[in-house]
Design a binder for these strands. Structure first.
Lengths: 214, 214
DNA sequence: AAATGAATTACACATCCGTATAACAAGAAT
DNA sequence: ATTCTTGTTATACGGATGTGTAATTCATTT
């Protein structure tokens, strides 16, 4: 008879984190159907039964993983606002560019995001997660637009934010799924021009590429 | 012993069509994992074995179904160009509006589209289908832009088409996934304003809503 | 050092998956 | 009428899936 596999006890937080990360990993690699209970457990270095000890069902794990993914993406976009923030126009330009560049714009990230779209449509809890994160991103964008040196009504601000968010999302999508269809930097340049045209601001001139990376 | 289930012989085209439709139906309702061989057969009113008589594998059926879906979406967008085509500007406005309205912009359609994104990233054949259809849509848009009463270089035309396609795709996505987040007609209005701003053309004034539907 | 508690493993179960192959029957050909 | 072709059903198989439940072993408490 085989000896029982040895193991270490870990904190609840650590275990949950590992399982979530493993699940997202697998979804990114092989789609939702690749993230089976057994595969997730294997990737996280535990046995399948443990998943049901931390999550009441696979569905719950899925929800939590989606929440984690959305948080991460919003955080990545916002990260660019922290360093090198000179003036509002430059900030908006940098934010726009970052949203259509890696790591936000990335084939794996889009695949991951798309895998959950169906559940978002169907499951109320997933829908709530989506709505909250979408609005958080858009609000961030709207605040950047509001800070521009120009006057604009609240209603117009909302429309501008939706429009700019649209361009960014669309270019994010296409650039990520079909990167070979565009020249290097082309998507960034088009994003800056388009958002600039919508807001009547010169973002191309204001753009300050991150100089820490050549 | 049960009597064997009676059946009718059908043409190859009809059967393939029914199976494809059943597959798309199921993916729309329950995601990719709901479109199992047995469920598809059941929906199409046949037994599971028949699928492998018309398709060498489930993977092939998936590919063909995706191709069918993309064709249909492009066709729906183009349909608006056929009737009531007065002038280039109005045509572009109508095309833009149609692309962010039902039946093109629709929760089910987005769910369907998203379900295939992962396979597009992974499978070369799926990728080819996607690329062809994406470029077909963009070229259609580019031709509409080129017909506008204004001069523009080929390079600029390409950039404009990518940008407008971006706005349209982004708004298509958000409006379809989260329809309750927008007022009726708001997405259409924003799409017209944004595309107009990018191209420096007044699409709002040129827009001629379809009067056959109130 | 012994006992307690719970994190973790191990195993079982019913169901579903895609695929392969053989039996049948519907409709055309003869 | 009878035969022939093949579209269609029926059934089987190995493997995978989510989920329950009992057995263990680690780490803490006593």
């Amino acid at each position: 008879m085989q000896p029982r596999r040895p193991y270490r006890r870990e904190s609840e937080e650590r275990r949950r984190e590992d399982l979530i990360a493993a699940a997202l990993d697998l979804v990114a690699e092989g789609g939702l159907h690749a993230a089976t209970v057994r595969a997730i457990a294997d990737r996280a270095g535990v046995t399948p039964g443990l998943i049901r000890h931390y999550f009441t069902s696979k569905e719950e794990l899925t929800r939590v993983a989606y929440q984690r993914l959305m948080e991460q993406m919003t955080r990545d976009s916002a990260a660019v606002l922290l360093d090198g923030a000179n003036n509002p126009t430059a900030q908006l330009a940098n934010f726009t560019a970052a949203s259509v560049s890696p790591p936000v714009a990335d084939s794996v990230a889009v695949g991951l995001w798309a895998a959950f779209v169906h559940d978002v449509r169907r499951d109320a809890a997933m829908r709530e997660i989506h709505t909250a994160n979408y609005l958080a991103f858009r609000d961030m964008l709207q605040r950047l637009i509001a800070a521009l040196p120009r006057s604009s009504s609240d209603a117009q601000l909302r429309r501008d934010a939706i429009a700019c968010n649209g361009v960014i999302d669309g270019l994010w999508l296409e650039g990520s799924i079909l990167p070979e269809a565009f020249a290097p930097g082309e998507i960034i340049s088009i994003a800056l021009t388009s958002v600039g045209a919508i807001l009547n601001v010169d973002l191309v001139a204001a753009y300050q590429p991150d100089r820490t990376q050549p």
